[in-house]
Amino acid sequence: MKKIITVVSLMVLLTGCGGGGGTVAGTSTSDTTIASNTTAPLESNTQATSTAAIIAAPEFDFASARTIDIQFDVPEARTTEGMLSLCTKYSSESDGTFNINYDSCLVQATLVNGLYQSQMELTNDVNSVIGVIWFADPDLAPVYKEFTLAATAGASARSANANTHPTIVWN
């Protein structure tokens, strides 16, 4: 019985691994060549017909996100405990209020004496965030501030100084 199981197991293993290394109807593996990319760069008004024709500038960074520095000094939160939420999905209403999807909050933190400093990662499609400060004192209404981020090609390109990040400041 052990021999039958061993034989069947080996057959399944060898069948699953496949062969390879053979030839296909009159060709051999030594005849295979790889074409080199000899496509010329595209002119500015030419449309690419293949990815081989696309050439990126050397400074282009294919990153899909960027780091944002956060520096908050919120006077309203210096004397009472405050909680911070930074969210990406929201809309502003005509009466000056905001409709916020709190599931989109990338930062939720406590302010210490009204101060908060950190960083967050934002995808390049996010051009603004909303900040909300919530107070432990139920008599104090939340404070809102909208931050618009520069929507430039710089979001996808390397900056001259790699240690410099866009900063949102609340003071």
Rank of each mutant, 00 (worst) to 15 (best):
M1P: 15
K3L: 15
I4K: 13
I4L: 15
I5F: 13
I5P: 01
T6P: 00
T6Y: 11
V7R: 00
V8W: 12
S9K: 08
S9E: 06
L10F: 15
M11F: 07
M11Q: 05
V12S: 12
V12P: 09
L13P: 01
L14G: 15
L14T: 06
C17L: 12
C17T: 09
G19L: 11
G19K: 10
G20K: 03
G22L: 04
A25K: 10
G26F: 01
G26P: 06
T27R: 00
S28P: 06
T29Q: 06
T29R: 09
S30W: 08
T32W: 06
T32R: 13
T33D: 02
N37P: 04
N37L: 06
T38Y: 09
T39D: 09
A40G: 02
A40L: 05
L42E: 01
E43C: 01
E43S: 11
S44L: 15
A48T: 03
A48E: 07
I54N: 09
I54Y: 04
P58V: 11
P58N: 11
P58G: 08
E59L: 15
A63Y: 00
A65K: 03
T67H: 05
I70F: 10
I70T: 06
I70N: 01
I70A: 02
Q71W: 02
Q71G: 00
F72T: 00
V74K: 08
V74Q: 15
P75F: 02
E76S: 14
A77D: 09
R78P: 02
R78G: 01
R78E: 13
R78A: 09
T79V: 12
T79H: 08
T80N: 03
T80R: 07
E81I: 06
L84W: 01
L86M: 08
C87T: 03
C87W: 10
T88G: 00
K89Y: 08
K89N: 14
S91F: 06
E93D: 14
S94W: 03
D95K: 02
G96E: 07
F98D: 05
F98W: 07
N101W: 02
Y102H: 10
S104K: 02
C105D: 06
A109R: 10
A109H: 02
L111P: 03
L111N: 00
V112G: 00
V112W: 00
V112K: 08
V112H: 07
G114L: 05
Y116D: 01
Y116N: 09
Q117D: 10
S118E: 00
S118R: 01
Q119V: 04
L122H: 06
N124K: 15
N124T: 13
D125S: 13
V126Y: 00
V126C: 04
N127F: 07
N127C: 04
N127L: 01
V129P: 01
V132Q: 09
V132H: 00
I133Q: 08
I133Y: 05
W134T: 14
W134F: 12
W134V: 14
W134Y: 10
F135I: 04
A136N: 15
P138E: 05
P138V: 11
P138M: 05
K145R: 14
T148V: 12
T148K: 15
T148M: 03
L149F: 03
A150Q: 14
A151Q: 10
A153V: 14
G154M: 07
A155C: 05
S156F: 04
R158D: 13
R158C: 10
R158A: 15
S159A: 10
A160D: 13
T164N: 04
H165I: 04
H165C: 04
T167S: 09
I168Q: 04
I168E: 09
V169P: 10
W170S: 11
W170T: 08
